[in-house]
Design a protein around this nucleic acid. Structure first.
Length: 338
DNA sequence: AAGCCGGGGTT
DNA sequence: AACCCAGGCTT
């Protein structure tokens, strides 16, 4: 591509003037603190920067070093991750920290890629930012920027990675990667790109087309499945019987006993759940709806009695779903507005 | 290649 | 309420 040098110079010049100041960007370019960069990149998978900032500070306060993380019980790690979602990220980060604490930080892209929870994106980010290794990151921001530069409506992963590889500035790979992602996050945004503020609009085929937001075409998404379930509260909002969730959904976190209602058979699911718990005297508390990417949960919550040990709910790592379920049990303090 | 895994923001 | 966003792992 003839104008690659111009494009690189324009974008890096913009980045040098407008880079976001973020707590994981401390340290020399190409030689950043690997622990902070790694934690931030895992945290920022599927999480926007504004929200990631809160979790980053909380996580670093709880586990200031990779050794501290490796030494912590998994329950403590999940507690620090509570509410952030995709909890496999936290469990993989914890497993990987044990390896890093024993063997030292990986010294290459390939070594990073071998850690659990580190895929092509995270390995490229960490190896470029901390080792100055020339690896082009490819995430949602980069895919969108590449699609627009080339006016490509349907960029595949392989195509976008190849375009990112072509443009990578090998002299400053870390800064380049941050620059492309900052551009995608703050200027080349999905809905209404701010082309007037873009340092590379002169190189952009989508801008030239006059319809930059048409690139890339929106992805077809699977419809969320509606799921009915019942949950049983034994105890109250502060102390309740909690189970460790197993399986893929919210696995590893604590939560109220819950039972999916196959075919929408809520009474049947309630009966089955009460029988499993040896619980009696069910009393309806309310209904909670909770959206997750691939399903829309409607949970019918009942209070009941059973001889089970109660747990301090404030100390357990709970998903947002369970925080909503427990909120139904809060004592009614509603005299102010009645 | 396709489906699964949370949660929050915007409209 | 409906829609948008999105990396890694599993199958």
């Amino acid at each position: 591509m003839p104008d690659t040098k111009d494009l690189q110079q324009a974008l890096l010049g913009w980045f040098d003037a407008h880079a976001r100041t973020l707590p994981w960007r401390a340290g020399a370019e190409g030689a950043r603190d690997p622990y902070r960069v790694w934690v931030s990149e895992v945290l920022l998978q599927q999480t926007q920067v504004a929200r990631g900032l809160v979790y980053f500070e909380r996580f670093l306060a709880a586990f200031p070093t990779v050794q501290a993380l490796a030494d912590a019980p998994e329950a403590d790690v999940l507690k620090a991750w509570e509410g952030c979602g995709y909890y496999a990220r936290a469990r993989n980060l914890h497993r990987a920290a044990k390896r890093v604490a024993a063997q030292g930080f990986p010294a290459s892209y390939d070594a990073w890629r071998a850690l659990p929870g580190v895929g092509p994106y995270t390995a490229a980010a960490v190896s470029s930012l901390t080792l100055n290794e020339p690896r082009a990151v490819m995430d949602g921001n980069v895919r969108r920027v590449m699609a627009r530069l080339h006016a490509e409506r349907t960029p595949t992963d392989a195509w976008a990675q190849a375009r990112a590889d072509e443009l990578l500035d090998h002299a400053r790979p870390g800064a380049w990667n941050e620059a492309v992602m900052d551009l995608g996050a703050t200027v080349c945004i999905p809905k209404a790109p701010r082309c007037g503020a873009c340092p590379v609009s002169a190189h952009c085929a989508a801008f030239a087309s006059g319809q930059p937001a048409q690139y890339p075409a929106p992805k077809v998404r699977a419809e969320a499945r509606a799921v009915q379930a019942v949950a049983v509260l034994i105890g109250d909002a502060q102390r309740a019987y909690l189970e460790v969730r197993s399986g893929r959904l919210l696995g590893g976190l604590m939560g109220l006993p819950m039972q999916e209602a196959d075919g929408g058979d809520v009474p049947g699911a309630l009966a089955a759940l009460l029988a499993r718990l040896g619980a009696r005297d069910p009393r309806p508390l309310g209904v909670v709806t909770h959206g997750m990417t691939h399903r829309h949960l409607t949970v019918h919550v009942y209070a009941a009695h059973a001889p089970h040990a109660l747990t301090d709910t404030g100390a357990a790592a709970l998903a947002r779903l369970d925080q909503k379920l427990l909120a139904l049990a809060e004592p009614t303090q509603g005299t102010l507005f009645t």
